[in-house]
């Protein structure tokens, strides 16, 4: 198989088959916390995708040229979390200066991304899977798109739930988790579609 088709398959499998939220359980906090409205969910997804793509590139470079080159694997977690935190800060400052409109849309979500386990999980999965630089960036972008897909679907379901008659004890978090369960079940239909 050519390298290009390999990359395309990697992208599709990251978005659907190994969806970060519904299959790998990464990024559940924003998935439950910021999925009340489609609009905000989409902004959150956009911000996360942006940071994920950059994180994938930055952590690949640091892992390959610093941590592995100087044999410092024990510094991996400390290094990754610093990279992610400063990247988020940097992206926030950059967007604030260049595009006030985008900043207004993403503003409050950016600081939240630092403690989003999907980002850290992405950084940890890349060395584990031994991806090349391009594959890492595609993996990061695909993870972000998968995240956005799941969170927007969830927001759509929750908007409709407003009109539902939910038992008192299940209101709020429990019913959200149960819906997420059903969503995860339906995503299982993609399993086995592609194996990378």
């Amino acid at each position: 198989m050519g390298e290009f088709s390999q990359i395309v398959l990697l992208f599709i499998s990251t978005v659907l088959v190994n969806n970060f939220i519904l299959v790998r359980f990464l990024g559940i906090c924003p998935f439950l916390g910021v999925s009340k409205q489609i609009e905000t969910a989409f902004s959150m997804g956009l911000a996360t995708t942006f940071v994920m793509t950059l994180t994938a590139a930055a952590t690949w470079l640091i892992n390959t040229f610093i941590l592995e080159a100087f044999n410092l694997p024990f510094l991996r977690y400390v290094a990754f979390i610093i990279v992610i935190a400063s990247l988020v800060q940097f992206v926030e400052m950059f967007i604030k200066k260049t595009s006030p409109v985008l900043y207004k849309a993403l503003g409050i979500f950016l600081p939240l991304i630092t403690t989003n386990c999907a980002i850290m999980g992405l950084a940890l999965l890349i060395p584990l899977n031994g991806y090349s630089f391009i594959a890492s960036v595609v993996f990061g972008f695909g993870a972000g798109v998968g995240f956005t897909l799941a969170i927007v679907l969830m927001a759509g379901l929750r908007e409709n739930l407003e009109f539902g008659d939910v038992p008192q004890a299940l209101k709020g978090v429990p019913i959200t988790l149960i819906i997420a369960g059903i969503l995860a079940l339906s995503f299982m239909g993609f399993a086995g579609m592609i194996s990378v």
Binding site: K171, V173, P174, L177, G181, I182
Partner: peptide
């Protein structure tokens, strides 16, 4: 087998939180 898969995790925890809320009420 579903209990071991992601869907089962969400469903079980959802019901657990529901029971917890019910006991508190």
């Amino acid at each position: 087998v579903i209990m071991l898969l992601p869907g089962g995790a969400f469903l079980t925890l959802g019901l657990m939180v529901g029971i917890y809320n019910h006991i508190n009420r």
